[in-house]
Structure formats: C-alpha cells, structure tokens
C-alpha cells in the first residue's frame, strides 16, 4: 500500500514536471511575439553614441525598422521611409532604425544615413541580441508599437517585390493612418520579400 502510494506520488510529481516542461517548451518555441503583446524594451545606442530605450517613448507611437544598408531591398525602401517620417513625425510618431547586421559598424551606418538623408536615429544592435529577442528575420522589417507599448503592426514595409518596385499596398502607412485615427488596422501582420538579417556566425 505504501509502495503503491509512493508510486502514485512519484507519478503525479512526474506529470507535474512534464506539464511544466511542456508549457515552458511551448512558450519558448511558439512565435515569440504576437499582435497586442508588449514590445520588449531595449537600450541601444545610435550611431552618435546616444542611448535610446523604448520605454523613453512611452505614450507615443513608435515605428521600429530593422534595416540594413547591406541589403538592396532595405535601401530601396529608404526614400519612402524618409517621406513617411516627414509626414508622420509632425504627428508625434517616433521612427527608429535598428541595424543588427553582424558586420556593419556605427560609423558606416552614420556615413550611409547622412548620404541618403535618413532623418531618424539608427541604433546598433550588436550581436543581433534584440533581433533575436523579437525574432526579427528580414530587412526591412517593421514593428509599430502603439501608445501603450503594445505591438500594433508587424511585418513588411509595403508589398513591393524589388528595391525600386512600386507598392500596391502601403502596409506601414495604412497602419499608421488607422492608429492615428483610432480605427482598427486592417492588416496587422504581413510578410515581405527582403534580405536575411545577417547574424553573428554561431560556432
């Protein structure tokens, strides 16, 4: 009887452990972030060495653009991002670029940003730590964070098929328009062609 009870106890303990493992496994393996989730905070320096965290922009809509000047597709979107910044920064929208490419250094980013007149800060994500945290994979890849710090849009900048291609749907602009006018965003998640974020090679 005692043996039977002990076996039962071990069994139930085992079941609890298994359940915890499965739950942890799911939370690790599943898609890291969903629409409506809080965007993880970061503390990253721009190419001038100035620190930026997401929390400092709380109460504002923030457009985060994973970008890479090494990627023709990402460069192709830049003139339109500049225009979008001109249009929406006056309405209180904050724009931040994040470069997670394992080779590109802040001074190179600065040189490029000045050349193409990219007006907003581009932060250096060394060792692609933040890209890993939010599972960003492509450049350009956009996250729009609402005034409460929640992810309102995630995906492509627009639906163009090449750097100079004409978009038929301007996902980022449409999402910003909806957010600013208090309407639901029609497409909250999209995918686009682009370049892989070149991460630090793993040993």
């Amino acid at each position: 009887m005692t043996n039977y009870n002990l076996t039962r106890k071990i069994k139930s303990l085992f079941t609890i452990c298994l359940t915890i493992c499965v739950m942890l496994g799911i939370s690790c393996q599943g898609k890291a972030l969903n629409i409506g989730d809080s965007m993880p905070d970061f503390n990253l320096k721009d190419y001038d060495g100035k620190e930026h965290s997401l929390s400092q922009y709380k109460g504002k809509i923030v457009v985060i653009e994973f970008c890479s000047q090494e990627c023709p597709y990402s460069r192709g979107a830049d003139p339109d991002l500049v225009k979008l910044h001109t249009k929406y920064s006056t309405k209180g929208v904050v724009f931040l670029g994040i470069d997670s490419h394992f080779k590109t250094q802040p001074e190179e980013i600065k040189k490029y940003a000045l050349e193409v007149k990219k007006p907003y800060p581009i932060l250096k994500d060394f060792e692609n730590k933040f890209a890993d945290k939010v599972e960003a994979k492509v450049t350009p890849e956009i996250f729009i964070v609402d005034k409460d710090g929640k992810i309102a849009y995630h995906g492509a900048f627009d639906d163009r098929k090449g750097p100079d291609g004409q978009p038929t749907e301007k996902y980022t602009e449409n999402a910003l328009e909806a957010l600013l006018s208090g309407k639901p965003i029609e497409k909250t998640e999209t995918k686009a062609w682009g370049c892989t974020i070149k991460r630090v090679p793993k040993n």
């Binding site: 994979k137 492509v138 450049t139 492509a156 999209t190 995918k191 686009a192 062609w193 682009g194």
Partner: peptide, 18 residues
C-alpha cells in the same frame, strides 16, 4: 504572389528573406 500566398503552395512557413 505574396510570401503568404507562396508559402501555402510550398506547404511551409517562410520568412520572406531571400
């Protein structure tokens, strides 16, 4: 075909990064 449309016929999720 968008990445969303093509991943349906390819029977696997793709990031869109080429």
């Amino acid at each position: 075909g968008s990445p969303e449309e093509i991943e349906k016929v390819l029977k696997t999720e793709i990031s869109g990064a080429l």
